[in-house]
């Protein structure tokens, strides 16, 4: 495992405005340490997806600085970051294996090696048997897993997840939550997880960063010091207490703007 410590993500004075309209985001300052699991929690439309896209380098900030592992977006290679979108975002014309292999294909990796790694990534998310299946033959939860496998296949240091499980039923979501935690523990990646579920953010993360409504700013940064994350944790009193804190912070954050 890579040594923990040091900043994996560093945001300074980050803002975003789409032309013509007012700012939708920031200014935001945020440091995420290597190997940390951080949730961004905020009301709908507060700019969570925008922030994630900017961190990924897919969208440019209006002002401010972004560095991932010390590098600004322009200096990064395509493999530094894994991204999971709100929807599975799979190519419908390609099998699960071909979808997962895409980042490797784009990086020019030989077909044979790439296939092997894609299969390994699929096996890691429990879909080893479905490598040849097309997206339409998979359930919503399975598609999300394929998407996760694709994000993992380049072995990125940083995983960005944009409400990946929001569209799934509760049972599937709980299971994928646990799978994600197991992956995170096993692989030691830095994870930024966007959600608007208080419960999910508390269950998963070491830090819950609560954002205000548009324009999204950081309202609170709550540390969750739980060691065990399992069914017991979900029913424990400390879990309920953290959820309460996060809920209150979220309510304040929403109100903070409603007043102005």
């Amino acid at each position: 495992m890579t040594a923990r410590g040091g900043d994996a993500i560093r945001l300074r004075g980050l803002t975003k405005a789409y032309d013509g309209r007012g700012p939708v985001l920031g200014p935001i300052d945020l440091d995420v340490r290597r190997g940390e699991f951080v949730s961004l929690l905020g009301p709908s439309g507060c700019g969570k997806s925008t922030a994630l896209r900017i961190i990924a380098g897919v969208s440019a900030p209006t002002s401010g600085e972004v560095a991932v592992a010390g590098h600004p977006a322009a200096e990064r290679t395509g493999r530094a970051i894994g991204f999971v979108f709100q929807e599975p975002t799979l190519m419908p014309w390609a099998s699960a294996r071909d979808n997962v292999r895409l980042p490797l294909t784009l990086a020019g990796e030989a077909r044979h090696d790439a296939d092997r790694r894609a299969d390994a990534a699929l096996a890691r998310v429990g879909l080893g048997e479905f490598a040849g299946a097309f997206p339409r033959e998979l359930s919503g939860g399975m598609k999300m897993r394929v998407s996760l496998a694709r994000a993992l296949v380049t072995e990125p240091d940083v995983l960005l997840l944009d409400e990946p499980f929001a569209a799934l039923d509760e049972i599937t979501r709980f299971r994928l939550n646990d799978d994600l935690l197991a992956l995170w523990r096993g692989l030691g990646k830095t994870v930024v997880f966007v959600t608007h579920s208080v419960f999910e953010s508390v269950y998963l993360s070491q830090r819950v960063v609560v954002m205000t409504a548009r324009p999204g700013r950081i309202h609170a940064d709550i540390r969750i010091d739980a060691v065990e994350r399992d069914a017991n944790f979900r029913t424990s009193a400390e879990y309920a207490a953290w959820c309460r804190r996060a809920s209150l912070a979220l309510a304040e954050a929403s109100e903070a703007v409603a007043v102005t």
Binding site: G57, R79, M91, L102, L106
Partner: peptide
Amino acid sequence: NLAGLFALYRASRWQTLRYLRLP
């Protein structure tokens, strides 16, 4: 989002055409 994904993985114009836009 797929276009964003290709941008994330630094796909060239030609790769984007071949693997995304043509299919």
